[in-house]
């Protein structure tokens, strides 16, 4: 029999597909864009959830991966459109407008970045880990502002959405399909990892690294691997986000972005598979509905977060499908 959690997961994912289909019927293209945004932001959250939810690694620096992934798209596309190589020595590297190429580059760059940030940050724990991840992201943020080559503070426009073989990415529903497929892939990867021995070790290390070492698992290696995978997932989401907006600016690297991704995870349910998706959806719905009434909609988001943290630790998922017996 399907457990309640699986049922809720299936319904949530089905709803996300239904919205753009409904939008097609009603001829409301804006809704397709919203569903695409939810998919991409949820994917960024799925990445963070792996580190924060399952690994207990409270990273306030995931904007670094989201933003760098975004800039990889922007930089590759702008070079391809200007016919200027990115570099000529020692290797000739050209820009690209092919999404698969861009994704691979974003994943590689963010993977290396996460390895560097993780290797240093994981030597600390608790509040110091939060601060050091934040510091790395802020360094990149200020760097992006002060680097005029790629627009500095004004950001970088991607005039045409990058291409994917066989699809017209400028068509909203096609781009939604790509983003949704990525979200599904990230959810599948996350679910497979969490259930594997690696995932169990990660969850055990969250509770007590010393005890994990006593059963032959190196907590540092497990946590670093999880941090890198987490960074890669969030980075690819960032690459898609630039394509969605056809624009990237330093704001994607700012700590607001890290905070927002964290809000998706907490609002939806920490260490719950579709928690980030539910969180991102609630966030976007609030933004759209309250944003129309008041400019200060984030005040109400803040109030909601306080209620969730104080009274519903499991987030929206904890409410929809309470966990049985698990602490």
């Amino acid at each position: 029999m399907m457990s309640r959690e699986h049922l809720v997961n299936a319904i949530v994912i089905a709803l996300l597909v239904l919205v753009p289909l409904l939008a097609l019927v009603l001829d409301e293209p804006y809704l397709i864009t919203l569903a695409t945004r939810v998919s991409i932001l949820a994917m960024a959250g799925v990445g963070l959830n792996l580190a924060l939810g399952y690994g207990g690694l409270v990273s306030l620096g995931h904007a670094a991966f989201f933003g760098v992934g975004g800039y990889v798209t922007g930089i590759l596309a702008s070079h391809a459109l200007n016919y200027e190589p990115i570099m000529q020595t020692p290797w000739m590297i050209q820009g690209s407008t092919e999404m698969p190429v861009i994704w691979i580059c974003a994943a590689l760059v963010c993977g290396v970045l996460a390895l560097l940030i993780g290797a240093l940050s994981l030597r600390t724990t608790g509040v110091y880990f939060i601060m050091i991840t934040l510091a790395f992201a802020q360094m990149l943020y200020y760097f992006s502002i002060s680097w005029p080559t790629y627009g500095g503070e004004d950001g970088l426009s991607v005039y045409l959405r990058n291409t994917f073989p066989g699809l017209n990415t400028m068509n909203g529903i096609h781009f939604f399909a790509i983003s949704f497929a990525w979200l599904l892939a990230a959810l599948w990867l996350s679910s497979a990892l969490v259930q594997s021995r690696f995932g169990l070790a990660l969850q055990a290390a969250r509770q007590n690294p010393v005890r994990v070492a006593a059963v032959g698992i190196a907590p540092y290696k497990v946590q670093l691997t999880a941090f890198v995978i987490s960074g890669v997932i969030t980075g690819v989401a960032g690459a898609l986000y630039t394509d969605l907006n056809r624009f990237v600016s330093p704001s994607v690297l700012s700590w607001h972005t890290s905070g927002e991704i964290m809000v998706f995870v907490i609002l939806g349910g920490v260490a719950r598979l579709v928690g980030p998706l539910v969180g991102a959806a609630v966030f976007i719905i609030l933004e759209q509905s309250l944003g129309g009434i008041s400019e200060n909609w984030q005040f109400w988001l803040g109030a909601l977060l306080i209620v969730v943290v104080l009274h519903a630790r499991g987030g929206v998922m904890g409410f929809l499908a309470p966990e049985n017996g698990h602490a």
Binding site: Q203, R211, A214, G216, I217, A327
Partner: peptide, 24 residues
């Protein structure tokens, strides 16, 4: 380090019954 000692073949049951409470 501790994890390599465990891998080398020493299984420790520490004092105080420390299970991973968040796992089944």
């Amino acid at each position: 380090p501790a994890y390599q000692i465990a891998r080398a073949g020493i299984g420790l049951v520490p004092e105080g019954r420390r299970v991973f409470a968040n796992l089944s």
